[in-house]
Amino acid sequence: MLSQESLQQIDREIAKYPPGKKQSALISALRIAQQEKGWLPKEAIEFVAGYIGIPPIAAWEVATFYGMYDLAHVGRHKITVCTNLPCALSGGVHAAEYLKKKLGIDFNETTPDGKFTLKEGECMGACGDAPVLLHNNHHMCSFMTTEKIDEMLADLEKQ
C-alpha cells in the first residue's frame, strides 16, 4: 500500500514516542501517506490505522478533523490561499481572485487538465508575509503580488 520509503518515514515518527504510544505518530503517518498518494484515499487511512495498530475509525476521525488532509482527489498542485482578516487587509482576497481568474476555477475546484486545485485556507501563522499561499501543503509562498503569482504559476506549469 505504501512504499518502503514512506514506511521508513512513519517508523521514524513512531520512534519519537514512548513504547505503546504509536498512535501519536498517526497525524504524521497520514501526512506521509498523503504525500505519497497525492491525496488520502480511505484505503490508505485503513492501512495506516492497521500499521499503527488502532481501529480504522480512530484514524478516520483524525483524517476528517485536521484541515490539511485531502479526502478527495486534488490537482498536482494544490494552492491554498489565506483570506483571513490580517491577510485580507494586505490583499489576500485580491490574490485569491487573481488566481481564480488566471486558473479559471473557483475555490475547491481543479483545472480540467488536473494540474491545479485552489483552496481557501485559514491562518497559516505568516500574516506579516501577506499575501501568503501554500503549495501542496508544505511550501509557503510569501508576499505574493500578481507578478510573483504569475512567476509561480509559470514555474509550476513547467513541472
Partner: peptide, 22 residues
C-alpha cells in the same frame, strides 16, 4: 510533533490530545 491544520490544537489540552494522535 507536526500538526496538520487545526487552530484548536493551540489550546493546551487539545494540543496534548493531538500529540496523543487524536
Amino acid at each position: 510533533h507536526h500538526g496538520y491544520g487545526a487552530y484548536i490544537c493551540g489550546e493546551e489540552t487539545a494540543l496534548l490530545e493531538s500529540i496523543e494522535g487524536k
